[in-house]
Design a protein around this nucleic acid. Structure first.
Lengths: 337, 337
DNA sequence: TTGTAGGCGTTATCAA
DNA sequence: TTGATAACGCCTACAA
């Protein structure tokens, strides 16, 4: 039924090794032979077995994308499709395929280190920094196994990330440029790196324009609708209310808009609102949100490139890439309209 | 460096085949030997090569999820993460992994039929019906290659889908139960199966309650914000305006809400609005939308099960699964509030 | 209960 | 330019 390299060899009256060379377009084979063998391959409907190739070449031609599906990762959930598309677009031309794998910390037998890495099921790994703990990262380094983190990582690992500090600066500066002068920051947990970066950017922008940072204008909370709402209520009803707010997420911003509406505070004339992330709401809120778009396809592309780099040139040092976000202006910060 | 089954055999003073049997927990091996061999495997840090196993067993232990990334598929884009999670959750316990693959119609060399199917890189395929054309489907059937479509498919193929007809009935009945009596339907293209099903459900619900169907209340258009807006404007300003609208998507409903707002028509007291799909907007519109949630994780689970069924029991006839949507009531249809 | 030998379908190294 | 032959690392009769 299934036709192998031997069948082709017999039919073409050449050795298996010759067929193999034709397959790989070796320059040592005459055009004539190539042509003849290929003809026969077509006739016999032959497609080489990728598994056999993998075994012989000692490479799976497979790269793994690790995900922790148990955590409701807003980020991945939103952008998974684009990231995958990005990765795929770079690896496919190198004959690689993408394996998605759920890291289940429940079953140690099925730990991805065994399932994918040690068993050589994949030649390299991409994962975001919520699954790549320091331990795991160190272990992969020790095993000299190629991997790239989506999201900044300590240690000698390659990673790609968005420039969150720059993002914080961009949103804050934008508000200041619009004429707002009392900018607050809502959302994020104090220890989180992503919060730290963004908030640093926020503070930098303030300093740069000669404003001082008010501690009480930086509110740590979950970046969701409810907590955004609460935080805004409190801030806006406080002694010293801000006239604009940078929000850690679309959802937090949604909560802020609700709070403003209830308090009869008009956006954008009385309150400017700007948010990180463009999806999924910012186009559809009332008023539409000024937000910071990140090109997650590019994120995938970059991580794919870095990983292939690790695989093909293991001796090069791991690289880091910071991607620039893009400001999308909408009504929620149009102070003078 | 890398330790193989032979190394273990030598170290344990047994034959390779014995080690292999231990690996597969064969009942023909004494507990003592098993124990001893396993001990040594641990000591030597041995993990079997999946590729070698695949070759020996003639199975890739891999299933492929096909996607056409060139098409901006709202559906996949939204629900990719959940679907993948669902599929993964069922195949992983059977030692399978998930390969995501982009079907690029551009490069015939890299066509997935060669890249994945004929080269035996995957043992089965899941794809949505936008990539599984009739031709491809027929070809896979001819090759006796296991596959499952996400979305109804003609011919002798297995598939899973949501019960769109039921969904149409549910939304429409709900509006009628709320006391609305003139229900329109906006969005969808006439030839699309998904539109046909949903609209059939809509019409069934009307008939069932003794209402007649007004042709002019069924508006075919793209299910996006802009066309939903236009359609609603026209309908609501027409001779015979409806008092409620079923929308093909969140986005179309968003457009409808905008139109109503502009015309000074109050939702829900003067106009009821209900939409297919729960994400991404329905919780966040003004007022929040009554909508039809579909559990896309279950969709993944079901397709995974059906596929594994095809792989493990190829002689069973292909099965079909219709999943039930769930109505989520929100303010947009609360007529008497 | 364990061991021997051959096979899975390629690629790679030599010779010819 | 081609051909034998030995890997690659595991599994599976069949034999002991």
């Amino acid at each position: 039924m299934k036709v192998t390299i031997s069948d082709i060899a017999k039919a073409a009256n050449v050795a298996k090794s010759t067929v193999s060379k034709v397959l790989n377009d070796s320059p040592k084979i005459s055009q004539e032979t190539k042509h003849r063998v290929r003809e026969i391959m077509k006739q016999m409907n032959y497609t080489p077995s990728s598994i056999a190739t993998q075994l012989a070449r000692q490479s799976s031609y497979n790269i793994g994308l690790l995900v922790d599906m148990s955590k409701e990762s807003e980020f991945l959930n939103q952008f998974f499709y684009n990231i995958i598309g990005g990765i795929e677009s770079v690896i496919v031309s190198l004959k690689y395929e993408l394996t998605i794998s759920n890291v289940q910390h429940s079953n140690p037998e099925g730990h991805f280190l065994n399932r994918l890495v040690l068993s050589k099921r994949v030649d390299g790994i991409i994962a975001n920094n919520s699954v790549l703990t320091e331990d795991l990262s160190a272990e992969l380094v020790r095993l000299q196994f190629p991997f790239i983190s989506i999201g900044e990582l300590a240690g000698s690992a390659g990673w790609v990330d968005f420039d969150n500090e720059l993002g914080g600066r961009m949103l804050t500066s934008h508000l200041l440029e619009q004429g707002y002068s009392a900018v607050a920051f809502i959302g994020g947990e104090e220890k989180e790196k992503i919060f730290t970066h963004r908030c640093n950017g926020y503070m930098q922008a303030l300093h740069q324009s000669g404003f001082t940072v008010h501690k009480e204008w930086i509110v740590n909370c979950k970046a969701n609708e409810h907590e955004g709402y609460q935080a805004a209520l409190k801030l806006l009803q406080g002694e010293n209310p801000p006239d604009s707010i940078v929000c850690m997420s679309n959802y937090a911003a949604f909560g802020v808009l609700q709070a403003a509406k209830e308090l009869g505070i008009h956006v954008p004339s009385q309150l400017g609102v700007a948010a990180f992330d463009e999806y999924p709401l910012s186009r559809y809120t009332t008023p539409p949100l000024t937000s910071l778009n990140i090109d997650t396809f590019k994120l995938g592309v970059a991580s794919g490139h870095l990983l292939m780099d690790r695989i093909l040139y293991p001796d090069n040092p791991p690289r880091h890439v910071l991607l620039e976000p893009e400001l999308i202006q909408r009504e929620s910060t149009r102070r003078n309209s």
